[in-house]
Design a protein around this nucleic acid. Structure first.
Length: 491
RNA sequence: GGCCUCAUCGUCUAAUGGCUAGGACAUUGCCCUUUCACGGCGAAAAUACGGGUUCGAUCCCCGUUGGGGCUACCA
């Protein structure tokens, strides 16, 4: 059987990092089985709908490298489109379908209309809480005569449709990550299926949709575990086979509370804007709650598809640990090279106004090579390479090496400038410069530090920077010598 | 409160009915080195607690404690 998984977010804002992980696991399961990964939009709550969030969720998913095979996507004009034969894939466009199956449930006596007001429900809850009773609907309207209910509806009375949960027995199911879980039916609420506004609740829509979209594996957050019996009951009433279900434990703040906005960024977009690479984010998030077991830490999306095992998903919640994310990001940035490096770095420098994007690509690549081992996020890049584009301001005192003296620098720098001037443009590259200056140092009986430190500072204007030869190669002969002359004037 | 669920270094995690409890991040020492970073080699750091079962339990069972989720006409 074809494996089909889905990611089904609500369009209430940006894609959450926890949702990214949920989507990723669903994606991995689909892909490793040559199955399909679908995207469905669950917009049954009109009050919480946020304009533009469908687009931004899809954009974040794409950024992470997860291509949707079926369902909702964006066309080349960034307009929301739907692809696939089992749509629509946006719940608000499926109202007719829900209505039809709600009617079927009602006809079969598996659901009933409820006219209880919000006030009564509120009082009921207060009473239950005050008396330390389990909270939940008291099933008052379940005893109503259907004919009378019909009459009240015709009179225009507000109503909802509720699921008739069995009053006895229990619902037991096997969760792919938790194993067997079981709930007493009497404690499960007669869930509202169709709201007074005619829209289905999540619980109803999810069952109908997963069934008709032929979803084989439901991967979702832990917050759904306790409502799973309601969903299973629905499958039973309809006579449908339920999909396999996996509940993922939640991502946590450093203090182990549920990951929240108050304690840091939770939107994938925040991390995109801060300069994290999609590969790092995916790798990091994949390892929060799953581990291949070996000692390898760096996994590409393709490798994750190969190695991922549902059985190895971890049951306990994982702290969203930014320091580890930083490390992953650093690793991925460090390993970028050539065209790839230029492609991901250039936009940041263009935004900072340092380059236009029309510069020579191979030269840009050497510029980025300078700092790629020194930055944690791409956002740090413009500041880090700024000295290449703008001759830096600095205090001449820093030209003196900690083991050297001002007099020494005053003597060495001009001689060095003179020597460098004799080197041809053809030889002006990192390797040659290193070799030639090295020889010059030896010949003059100098120490590396007494020459290299002032040279490096003269070129970079910074106490900490990449090595002098790499910088000199990037700057070119003319600019390099110019900067050394400027340095001499500062002494 | 009720129901469900989880529990190995600070964090992410590996492992087994008999172990020096392994790795990674972070911390830290040393090396490399003109600086910073990278890299290399080390150090410190964990089986929540109490009972069982067992020759033996971190692992199996029960309880306690602690964390998390649900308890909406939100998802």
């Amino acid at each position: 059987m074809m494996v089909r998984t889905r990611f089904a977010p609500s369009p209430t804002g940006f894609l959450h990092v926890g949702s990214l992980r949920t989507a990723l696991y669903a994606y991995l399961i689909a892909k490793q089985n040559n199955g399909k990964f679908l995207l469905r939009i669950e917009d049954t709550d009109r009050k919480r709908f946020v304009e533009g969030s469908i687009e931004s969720i899809i954009t974040s998913l794409k950024w992470a490298g997860m291509e949707v095979d079926e369902g909702v996507g964006l066309n080349s004009d960034d307009k929301v489109v739907q692809v696939g034969a089992k749509g629509p894939y946006i719940q608000s466009e499926r109202l007719g379908i829900y209505k039809k199956f709600a009617a079927q449930l009602l006809d079969n006596g598996h659901a009933y209309h409820c006219f209880c007001t919000a006030e009564r429900l509120g009082e009921l809850k207060n009473y239950q809480q005050a008396n330390k009773l389990p909270t939940g609907y008291d099933k008052l309207c379940r005893e109503l005569d259907p004919a009378e209910a019909k009459k009240r509806i015709e009179n225009g009375e507000q109503h909802v449709l509720r699921l008739k949960m069995p009053k006895g027995g229990e619902t037991t199911f096997v969760d792919l990550v938790r194993g067997e879980v079981s709930f007493k039916n009497e404690l499960i609420d007669d869930q509202v299926l169709i709201k007074a506004d005619g829209f289905p609740t999540y619980h109803f829509a999810v069952v109908i949709d997963d069934h008709f979209m032929e979803i084989t594996h439901v991967i979702r957050g832990d917050e759904w575990l306790s409502s799973t019996p309601k969903h299973l009951q629905l499958y039973k009433y309809f006579g449908w086979e339920a999909p396999k279900i996996a509940h993922l434990s939640l991502l946590l703040n450093a203090d182990k509370s549920k990951l929240s906005k108050r304690q840091g960024d939770v939107a994938v977009k925040d991390y995109i804007d801060k300069g994290y690479l999609p590969q790092a984010m995916v790798n990091f998030v994949a390892f929060l709650g799953w581990n291949p077991g070996g000692e390898q830490e760096i996994y590409s999306l393709e490798q994750l598809v190969e190695e991922f095992k549902v059985e190895k998903i971890i049951k306990s919640g994982a702290v969203f640990n930014l320091e580890k994310l930083d490390w992953f990001n650093q690793q991925y940035i460090k390993n970028l090279s050539g065209d790839e490096l230029v492609k991901v770095c250039s936009p940041w420098l263009i935004k900072a106004g340092l380059i236009t994007g029309n510069e020579d690509k191979s030269w840009l690549s050497t510029v980025f090579d300078l700092e790629k081992e020194r930055i944690v996020t791409l956002a740090e890049l413009p500041e880090a390479v700024k000295f290449v584009f703008i001759a830096p301001e600095y205090d001449g005192q820093i030209l003196v090496w900690k083991k050297g003296t001002l007099e020494e620098v005053k003597k060495i720098l001009p001689e060095l400038a003179e020597f460098l001037d004799t080197i041809s443009i053809q030889d002006w590259n990192e390797e040659k410069l290193q070799a030639m200056v090295g020889e010059w140092i030896t010949k003059n009986g100098l120490s590396n530090g007494s020459v290299l430190w002032p040279l490096r500072v003269a070129l970079s204007g910074q106490q900490n920077s990449p090595g002098p030869f790499e910088i000199a190669a990037v700057l070119g002969k003319e600019e390099s010598i110019e900067r050394i002359k400027t340095a001499i004037e500062k002494l």
